[in-house]
Design a protein around this nucleic acid. Sequence first.
DNA 1: TTCCCTCGTATTTTT
DNA 2: TACGAGGGAA
Length: 769
Amino acid sequence: MQIRLNPEQRKAVEHGDGPLLVLAGAGSGKTRVLTARVARLIETCEIPPHRILSVTFTNKAASEMRERIEALTGGEARGLWIGTFHSLAARLLRREAGHSGRERTFTIYDEDDSLRCIREAMEACGLDPRRWSPRALRSRISSAKNALVGPSDYAVSAYDLLSRAVADVYPAYQKLLSRRNAYDFDDLLFDCVQVLEGVEEVREKYAEQFLHVLVDEYQDTNHAQYRMVRAFAGRHENVCVVGDDDQSIYAWRGADLRNILDFERDFSGASVVRLEQNYRSTASILQVANAVIACNVARKPKNLHTEREAGEPILVARTPNERREASWVTSQVRSLDGSYGCGDCAVLYRTNAQSRAFEEALRRAGLPYRIVGGVPFYERREIKDVIAYLRLAVNPADDAAFARAIGWPRRGVGDVTLDRLREEATERHAPLLETAASAAEIEGITAAARRSLVDFAERLSRLREAQGAMSARGALESCIKSFGLATALAEEEDGADRLENVSELFATASSFDRTEVEDAAAEASDLELYLQTVALRSEIDDVEFDGEAITLMTLHNAKGLEFPVVFLAGLEEGLFPLSRALDAEGGIEEERRLFYVGVTRAMDRLYLTYADRRWRAGTESRSSPSSFLDELPDDPIERRLTGGASRRTQRWSTGPTGVAGGGSVTSPWTGTGGGLGSASGGYDWRRSVRRAAGSEARPSQDPEELRYDYSDTQVPLELKPGARIVHPRFGEGRVLAVSGAGREAKAEIEFEEVGTKKVVVAYAGLRPA
DNA sequence: TTCCCTCGTATTTTT
DNA sequence: TACGAGGGAA
């Protein structure tokens, strides 16, 4: 085996039978250990790959691990069960469809679908969506499912008014999902446990099949996932879990720290291996990380150490506002020139909304960047619309997909017709699509709408019959042709962009490889498997990190990654730690762990930034420095004040006194007063940044080649806000804002004669004044 | 039936 | 700020 290991790592890799807990500190090489262990099980212990189950946190991690194991074993990884809890659950439920409450072709509902479904369930129960927030109800139901509490169990202990409302909606919601042959994310886990625990035949089958079970990021598992592990581990209990209680950041999603803290009690006779040598960060960064996490009480003590040198000090920068924060970060990236490229840098923040300022600054500076998350690709309207057709072709009971598909492109079927159809469908206990097929017999629908419905149903059933024998790409192509989707899209206002997104969808469908999800021999069609993969895909899965672009993402998305240069932005009280997160029990500790995760992403350089003022929710307000900054040690820290246009930079000689819990620190850094008035840069950013949504990382013609091409997103130089221009019809005017790019670029212009108008740059025939 | 506008509200992190 | 829902007009 060609992998270098330290003694502790080796111990974990070579551990024989029985439960094993690997407490792996940040950067201690746990992925290496997991990979090596699986490879060793296959090669040395001669365990057939299909008898090994390995659970990872993201699909990306799964495919990377699969690749590495294949490399290590010379292609012997085929048949290995590897994936996220959700994708493995989906796989199991597909295979055991006969024992679960759904058919094999089930749809997986995303948040949006499930929220609509909740609304419908509420209506059915007569609950007023203005009195009860559908989101709140959904989140309660989600927590219940993660704790394996079903509708009837829930009802038993529902005392307060909110719980009573939930108790009403929960069963109604489940009934709707079941009728639509759909699962929400939580159901996948819930039903998987139900089947595993409730059906002896199934339980035996998998307990028998899996000789070894490995789980990564065990600290982030919830109760349902824990029960899955238990069921899979069966009697042999050859279960190896890897995790770090200090990096648990998903309590809000039901993750239960007790899973890892109590592992030794749960699985008696468990061996424990501690990986405490960090191979990633400089001593300075690690020193800060250790100091930060030491402020938490609920944790297993550990001693993370490194052999690396101290390296550069950690830079803490105070800036006047979030725009200056972003431009400061940009200037720092530039000043790294030579030692690090853009691809080495990451900007991490607490909330997605913070990406905006960085986007603007980087775009202005002409630096390449990529954003992970934000408005996910698969949630774009046109993508969801196209997918709805495919979903319906696979699962005709999917009423949510029907409603989406019938409404776009417009075909003379609106709310009125749809409502009538729903009534009829409810009466017949039939799905909407089936009802639509016999629309001719339904009263109260116009003749035109009837024809539309019948035609729609016919085309769809043709697609349905054809797709079974097609590749995912073929099905997509045939769907787009049959329903004229591309044509419809092209006719829309911003059709060009949307069409590009659809061609990107083509690329993903073309490269879809079913063997990563399921055995080639499984009954399911390519399209079925493709759709389920799409539903469980996360943004981070599709990111290639080898490009030369600065990565912008939330701290949550950064888990498991590392970068030579890391900027942690927005270290302000209320933002990070986020005030809303503090409501939850143990909230501050979870936020601190998140901070710890951020700090430990950095290999060589770490920057922490905060702003005195920040735009949030449409208003600018004062912000004070994060209490986390008070918890930093004095030593490898250098504090900077980045002020007005002169970029006043100071070294801070009189360090703050307190470390942990050290009350308020009065220094020019933590006070909010500061003599730094609003920086008057000369021109108003707020106006210049009003651009079209979704301007990040637009895929271009050849998605394979140019995944992130920003060349066409630059605003033409002469059309910057403030520029004076002449329009052939409207006369002279001043540019207020520019949006879009290339042929799509539009400019908002204040004309002297006719007032403010929006024009499409390509057609307007503008000249400089 | 559709389109467009206005108003109100929320807004954390994600499989 | 930004999105969704709801109202009013074509």
